[in-house]
Structure formats: structure tokens, C-alpha cells
Design a binder for these strands. Structure first.
Length: 627
RNA sequence: GCUCUUGUAGCUCAGGGGUAGAGCACUUCCUUGGUAAGGAAGAGGUCACGGGUUCAAAUCCCGUCAAGAGCUCCA
């Protein structure tokens, strides 16, 4: 995501709310300066975010903590009350530079230290563009605006959090304190927003994952390594079964491959040593290790030996493609065999930075619902369509329509992309065409492609506004080249197949994480770990309850019976908290009539039904995967 | 990886330089009750780990590990 300054055109289009939030950022900066006059400000834009509305980056000796927020907000209140006008003033580049050097910009007065960031930012303003300064009270800031009329407009605000950010988003630059806040037209809207944010946090998959015993991350096992608990495993298995049916329909072949492969395999694919930093360190062959060790080899020597191929070893697979490619290449192919579609729930390992790990959405070991299609160039468009269809079936079945589509292209400036630019153009064009046929708006983003090819990604947001890529369809002309794959055409000549990589869920971990939040833990019946709980009124009806339990079990329904000596009220409460879709209350009335009292998790008491009627209904609901 | 914050019973958390607390969950007993908490008793923690300061550390300091927020990254 580029942190570049907004163009003039973009600034003109700033909405009223963005204007207000940006102005509030100025008010906040003014308040901070009242308290810490030596604060140095960098960027302070409004942002489009689920939680936050603006931020301002500041360099300050004092470490701002949440305890300081109240103090800052109190100062802001005074500034709002003074109702200072925001005044725009245009200056020449030299005048601006002078002001920045005297510490006046991003300050309340001239200061001993120059306004370092403002001096630097001036250099980023293109020649010929008008340079403007906005003033409110004593606060002068280098700023293109626009702003609201007066500080009095900024009366509903909240400082929300403080974190840190690299200046200009570059990890080589110094880190600044970033203060996040938001602002609205009035207090009512602000309160509503803050309540919405709090409510969203209740759906956090990490919180629900613990409460519903879906998964855990164990310190002794390791960071970013998901342990699927029995309840979570049921959900995953159901999803796998679901997509398995679709794959069968679409003519895929299931394969299984090991979790490791020789380094040479990845030298050919280009994963090693090129992406060494994001892989686990190779597993070294014992003989090779002993030999090197006898030779008194250092760690650096070993590393070099691995990289230049003098020592052999295995890599935990960072992707499944090379294994699938070797399966394709196991036998000669005629154009009549194509497309070859190889599918596997393939587990991969990636060395993600520790600071990026979190919950199920960013992990170090995950299982992709992966497949690789080997197709003739003629078949490409149709096969891409098939893959997109699959993604749509998945998202449609789960009623996840709140996603955006991204066509991820290479960055022509970057050297991380392998292969012939002409092939890249072809692949990008094919995907662009496919994306258009989706009938949904999409964005094209440079620099988001995989190193071997461009892709169409389906991106969703989590409860705190972070975006995650789920499903993906990628076109690849490069790996077939690197592995020298071919098929025999109708002309009896050898031809190069094109590869499609695709994963409708993306990864089981991330998808289930997002799914937990999507349903707020209220999984549809077919996905619910426990689908029915039978609640006998008292011991006397235990046997009757067990009869019902047996009937449901016989139909494959996941059912439990609560035989504790609690009262129904308490039993219901526990079942509600466990988010079990159906509760069956069974007492004297029901037993006599061969019925059950049905209570649904969300719909409440639904009255009595005969046992058979209920069994039929729930079996149908599960089979049809009703959401 | 970086900055900041956090780490106390299975869970949610209070406390805080003098050797540990609540609610829920758990176990046992009583209760057999009709749509979100019936009652009683009991058990459960060397306060993440390793050092240091101190007569004394769960509490203060340093380090490690882990979690959270943000940044950077994400083939």
C-alpha cells in the first residue's frame, strides 16, 4: 500500500467526513504541542478504516501512552472551544523551507530544532505545485488541505490508540509514534461508531476460537502453528467434504504429496534460495552434515554450501506446485488428456516474521485447498472460468458476499518476478478478461502478483478492518518453462502447457478464522460442531432423550444429550453459550406424544414437533447446506 | 524483524516488597425442576521462564519466551 501523498485531484474529492477528520488531526497536533512543544510531526492524513478515522505521526521523546489520551483530549477540547478558523496561506518553496528550518511548521512558534520531517516533505512536493500552509490558532502546518472552516466543527472525536510506524513506511527509516483517532459530525454518530467497534471485537475469531474450543496455539508447539481442536476439526472437515464434492463434479484428480522435497526441486522452481528468508531453514541430510562437521565447517560455510548446492538437504514445502508438477511430469501427456487437474489439501510452511503472526489469519503452517491445472493455451480461458466458478460457489454457499476482487499484477519496476514479459502480458490479459466476466467491480494492483504469475484474489476484511486474501486463481507460464513441461499436440509436436494455480478457500486456517467472524460463531447447522443438544427435563426422561439421540445419530447428526441434574433453564443457557443450533426439550408431554420441543439458537422456542418430523427437517437442512 | 503494551487458577479478571483472591468452569452431595444461571461442600496457582536488587520479589530492575496493537513483510 503506497503512502504517497494524495494528488490534487484526490484532495478535491475529499469527502466532508475526511475533511473533518483531517482537521481533527490538526487539532490533535495542536493539543500535543501545547503539552510537548518539541513534538515533530510527519504525516497526518484521514484514513478509510473500519476503526480509525485519522492518524498523525509524531516524533517525541515522551512515550505517549493511553494514559495521556485524556490529557490530550482535554487540550483539544479547549482548542475546539476557541473555535479557531482554519486559514490557508500559499507560500513560495523558499518561504516554506525557511519556515520549516525555523521549526515553525508543525509547531506553535519558531523552535530551536528545525521541522525535520516538514523539510523533507517539501522535497516531495512536485515542482510547480502550489505550496500551502494551514493555520489554526498558533499552529502552522505544511498542508494541502482541505479543511473545515473552524476548529469548532471538530467537536466529536476520540483518540483511540498509539502504535508505531516507520517514517514514510520504510523499515530503514526511524520509527515514529502514530496516534490513531476518529471523528464524526456529532457525538451520537461517534458513540454509535465506537459501540459498533466494540461489538465487532466480540466476534474476533481468537476470542470465539477459545470460547467455542475450535483451535489453540500452544507455546510449547510454537508460534503460528495451529492446533485444531475437535470442534474446529469438524468445521474444517465439513468444508473439505463440501469442496471435495465440487471437485469431483469438475473433474479434478485427488493426489497426496509429502511435506518436504529436495532442495534441488526448489532450485528448479525458483523458491530456493531466492525466497530463503520466508522459508524454514532446510533440513540437512545426515551424511552431508557429518561430512561438513568433520571438515570443521562453520554455520556460514554450511549456509553457503546449501545455497550453492554443495550440500544437500530438504525443504519444508513452501508451496505445493513443484510436487504437483512432478506428478504431471510422471507420464507423457497428449493434448487429449488435458486439462490435467491435480488437487490436494496441501500443507505448506512459511517463515513469517514473528510480529506478523496472529490467530488463524497469519500462521507459519497452513493447509491450502490447492490444485494445479495443466492446460493447453486454448483451454486457458475456460479453465479460469471454472476456477472462478468454484470460488463463487464456495462464497455463495456460505453467503459471504462482502468481499472485493483484486487483479494482482507484477510491478514492472521490480526484479522479483521471473519469466518472459510477453508471457506475463498474456497471463495478465487472460485474468483481466476473466475478472471482467465476474460482473463485480475489481481493482488492478501492481506489485501484488506471485513471483511466477499474476492472480485474481478474493479479499475480505476481519473484525478490526484488516484485509485478508482468501480465494485465489493464478495463471502461470513460468513454472512449466522452468520444469520443461510439455504435451503432444494434434500436430504431433511438443507444446508447453499453461498452469493455473487455484485455491478457493485460500488456506483452511485463514478461511476458518474469517468464517468464525463472518458467522460470529453461529455456524450454519451443517458446519456446527454440535448440531443438536437434547435437554431432558429430569432424570425420568433420560431414556426418552437417549432414544431421540440414537435416532439422530443413526442419521449422522452430531447430537449430544445433557444428562446433568441442572434445571432446563441452566441447560438451555449452556447450549446457547455453546451456540448449538437446535435444543430439544424433552419432558412428560413430549414423551407421551412421541414429540420434542424445539428451540432454535436464534429463533427461540419453535413449539413441538414429532421426533421423525424433526429428524427429517434437520437432515434436509444439513444436506442442503442451508445458511 | 521493529516500536509500544501485556503475561496471576481451565476461563474472565482483581490485587500488589512481607510468602495469593473473586466469579464462572470442575468434583461430590442435596435438589427432579418446563425455555438463558437451584443449593451446599471440596479441590485447584512455586503469580510465563531465567537472572539481579533486597533481610524479604508474584510485586522493583534486566534478559528470554509468548500474546495484543501498529509498522515493515506476505512467493
Amino acid at each position: 500500500m503506497s503512502k504517497d501523498r494524495k494528488t490534487l485531484e484526490e484532495r478535491d474529492q475529499m469527502s466532508d467526513l475526511e475533511r473533518l477528520r483531517h482537521s481533527t488531526a490538526h487539532v490533535m497536533a495542536t493539543a500535543i504541542l501545547k503539552i510537548w512543544p518539541d513534538a515533530q510531526f510527519a504525516y497526518g492524513p484521514p484514513i478509510d478504516h473500519e476503526v480509525y478515522g485519522f492518524y498523525y505521526d509524531v516524533d517525541l521523546k515522551h512515550r505517549i501512552t493511553p494514559d495521556d489520551f485524556e490529557k490530550i483530549e482535554a487540550e483539544m477540547k479547549k482548542i475546539v472551544k476557541e473555535n479557531q478558523p482554519f486559514e490557508r496561506m500559499t507560500v513560495s518553496r523558499d518561504e516554506a523551507l525557511e519556515l520549516a528550518k525555523s521549526g515553525r511548521l508543525g509547531g506553535l512558534a519558531e523552535r530551536d530544532a528545525e521541522s525535520v520531517f516538514k523539510v523533507d516533505l517539501l522535497n516531495d512536493i512536485p515542482e510547480g505545485e502550489e505550496i500551502s500552509i494551514f493555520k489554526n490558532g498558533d499552529f502552522w502546518d505544511l498542508c494541502a488541505g482541505p479543511h473545515v472552516g473552524r476548529t469548532g466543527n471538530c467537536k466529536a472525536y476520540k483518540i483511540q490508540s498509539v502504535a508505531s510506524a516507520f517514517y514514510k513506511g520504510d523499515a530503514n527509516n526511524q520509527q515514529l509514534q502514530r496516534l490513531y483517532g476518529t471523528a464524526f459530525k456529532n457525538k451520537t454518530l461517534l458513540t454509535e461508531h465506537l459501540e459498533r467497534v466494540e461489538e465487532a471485537k466480540l466476534r474476533d475469531h481468537r476470542k470465539l476460537g477459545k470460547e467455542l474450543e475450535l483451535f489453540k496455539i500452544d507455546e510449547q508447539v510454537g508460534q503460528g502453528l495451529i492446533l485444531w481442536l475437535p470442534n474446529g476439526a469438524i468445521i474444517r472437515q465439513e468444508l473439505q467434504n463440501f469442496i471435495g464434492e465440487e471437485l469431483e463434479r469438475q473433474g479434478y484428480s485427488q493426489v497426496f504429496t509429502p511435506h518436504i522435497g529436495k532442495l534441488d526441486l526448489y532450485r528448479t522452481s525458483g523458491h530456493f534460495p531466492y525466497y530463503e528468508d520466508s522459508q524454514f531453514v532446510p533440513v540437512i541430510e545426515r551424511d552431508a552434515l557429518n561430512k561438513l562437521s568433520d571438515e570443521g565447517c562453520s554455520c556460514a560455510d554450511l549456509n553457503n554450501a546449501l545455497i550453492n548446492g554443495e550440500a544437500d538437504g530438504f525443504l519444508l514445502k513452501p508451496m505445493n506446485c513443484p510436487h504437483h508438477i512432478r506428478i504431471y511430469d510422471a507420464s507423457p501427456h497428449s493434448y487429449r488428456d488435458l486439462p490435467v487437474r491435480l488437487a490436494e489439501f496441501g500443507t505448506v510452511y512459511r517463515w513469517e516474521q514473528s510480529g506478523e503472526l496472529g490467530g488463524m489469519t497469519r500462521v507459519r503452517c497452513f493447509t491450502q485447498d490447492d490444485a494445479h491445472l495443466f492446460v493447453t493455451p486454448d483451454q486457458l480461458d475456460e479453465e479460469i472460468q471454472g476456477c472462478l466458478e468454484l470460488v463463487k460457489i464456495v462464497l455463495g454457499t456460505l453467503k459471504m458476499d462482502d468481499y472485493r476482487v483484486r487483479v494482482s499484477l507484477r510491478d514492472p519496476e521490480s526484479d522479483k518476478y521471473v519469466g518472459d514479459p510477453a508471457n506475463w502480458d498474456k497471463a495478465e490479459e487472460a485474468l483481466r478478461k476473466a475478472a471482467q466476466s465476474l460482473g463485480k467491480p475489481f481493482t488492478e494492483e501492481e506489485g501484488e502478483a506471485a513471483f511466477y504469475g499474476p492472480k485474481i484474489d478474493f479479499v475480505v476484511k476481519d473484525v478490526i478492518g484488516r484485509e485478508w486474501q482468501l480465494g485465489t486463481v493464478q495463471v502461470d507460464y513460468n513454472l512449466p518453462e522452468r520444469f520443461d513441461l510439455h504435451y503432444t499436440g494434434a500436430d504431433n509436436e511438443k507444446h508447453r502447457p499453461v498452469m493455473i494455480h487455484r485455491a478457493p478457500f485460500g488456506s483452511m486456517e485463514r478461511f476458518v478464522g474469517v468464517l468464525i467472524e463472518h458467522f460470529a460463531g453461529h455456524f450454519p447447522t451443517w458446519l456446527s460442531p454440535e448440531q443438536v443438544r437434547i435437554l431432558p427435563i429430569s432424570d425420568k426422561f433420560a431414556e426418552y432423550g437417549q432414544e431421540i439421540e440414537a435416532k439422530l445419530k443413526a442419521k449422522g447428526v452430531r447430537v449430544k444429550i445433557d444428562l446433568t441434574s441442572e434445571k432446563v433453564g441452566a441447560k438451555i443457557r449452556l447450549a446457547q453459550l455453546a451456540k448449538v443450533p437446535y435444543m430439544l426439550v424433552a419432558g412428560a408431554k413430549e414423551m407421551e406424544a412421541g414429540e420434542v420441543s424445539v428451540r432454535h439458537r436464534n429463533r427461540g422456542d419453535e413449539g413441538t414437533k414429532s421426533v421423525d418430523e424433526f429428524v427429517d427437517a434437520i437432515v434436509k437442512e444439513i444436506e442442503e447446506r442451508v445458511v
